[in-house]
Computed example of a mutant assay.
Amino acid sequence: MTLSTEQAGFYLAHVQAEAARLGEVGRMGLEPAVPSCPGWTVDSVLRHVAQVYDHKIEVLRLGARPTDWPPDFSGRETLEWFDEARAAIVAALEKVGTAAETWTFSPRDSTSGFWYRRMAHESVIHRIDVEQAYDIVTPIEAELALDGIDELLYPTLGGPWWEEGDTEHPVDATVRITAAGRSWTIRLDGTSVEITQGAEGDAAAEIFGDPTPVFLWLWGRVADDAIQIAGDEDVVRAFRGRLAECTT
């Protein structure tokens, strides 16, 4: 991804702000269960994010996926580890810039700019997780939520992950998502997912609403009543299942 200076600053500022908020909520207590992640607590979320940050620091340092990963983090105190990792990922992104060649999971982008964007969205969705544990959810900036919809649809959903038909939801239909005047059209079958910008052609089901609830619904962080649905509800359920397969 070729990022402008403004885009890079936008993502980096959100990594910093969302991670800071995540740590702030963590300091309220690590024990509460996280409703959107069954079996996880606030502690689980912070440790997960710290490990993700450390992994991406290594990816950026090596320009490749690290081998023998992960190391043993079991002895690390959660909040101390998280604070170190959140400072270190910002430093690593700033040091490498946005144009370095590196490993990513996107077939279309092998630059470090990919990780600026991915870490912003990693941070915000898990910030929501810990806030939900305390029922103190704070807003997501609309521009970030819209970008998060786009990023979740491609590369996370629309990458070449389905060629072997490894899905429990082989829905064969077209779904359209609309938020704040932007639309995405998603064509699914048992072995592929194709994403296009815009609202051309017919769709079996449409999902629409404000950017934040749509973004959170796509990630499984809010229920169906947070968004609006038109068309075939079975297709919507299968589509949501397909999303769950690629985000867990």
Rank of each mutant, 00 (worst) to 15 (best):
V171S: 11
Y11N: 06
A133L: 04
T98E: 06
G39V: 06
D189Q: 08
F105N: 11
K95Q: 13
W217Y: 15
V171I: 15
L157C: 08
W219D: 06
P70D: 07
P38G: 10
R240S: 14
L243V: 00
A205N: 07
V171W: 09
Y154L: 12
Y53G: 05
V193I: 10
E206F: 08
R76I: 01
G158V: 01
R21L: 07
I57K: 11
V25G: 13
A238T: 01
L157V: 00
A99E: 14
F10C: 04
P139H: 09
I186D: 13
Q228V: 00
E141S: 05
I140F: 02
F215S: 09
T138W: 01
Q228M: 09
V193N: 10
E200T: 15
A88G: 15
I57W: 00
L146A: 07
W184N: 12
G209D: 06
E141I: 03
E58P: 00
F73E: 08
R21Y: 03
G158K: 11
C37Q: 07
A33V: 03
V90F: 09
L46Y: 02
R118T: 01
A133G: 03
E151P: 00
A173L: 11
E164W: 01
R27Y: 03
T191R: 14
D225K: 09
W81G: 06
G26L: 10
L79C: 02
G190L: 05
F208W: 14
H169C: 10
V96P: 00
I125G: 00
A20G: 15
K56N: 15
C246G: 13
G39H: 06
G23A: 12
S110M: 11
D210V: 02
V175H: 10
E200K: 11
A204W: 11
V59Q: 01
L153F: 03
E94A: 13
V25I: 15
W115Q: 09
V214A: 12
W69L: 06
D202Q: 14
L22C: 11
I89G: 06
S74R: 12
D147E: 12
L146D: 07
K56G: 00
D166T: 12
D232R: 09
R27C: 11
V42A: 05
D150N: 12
V96G: 02
D147F: 06
G158N: 07
I207T: 08
D234I: 10
T2Y: 05
V235E: 13
E131A: 03
V175C: 11
T102I: 09
W40M: 04
H126C: 08
T98W: 04
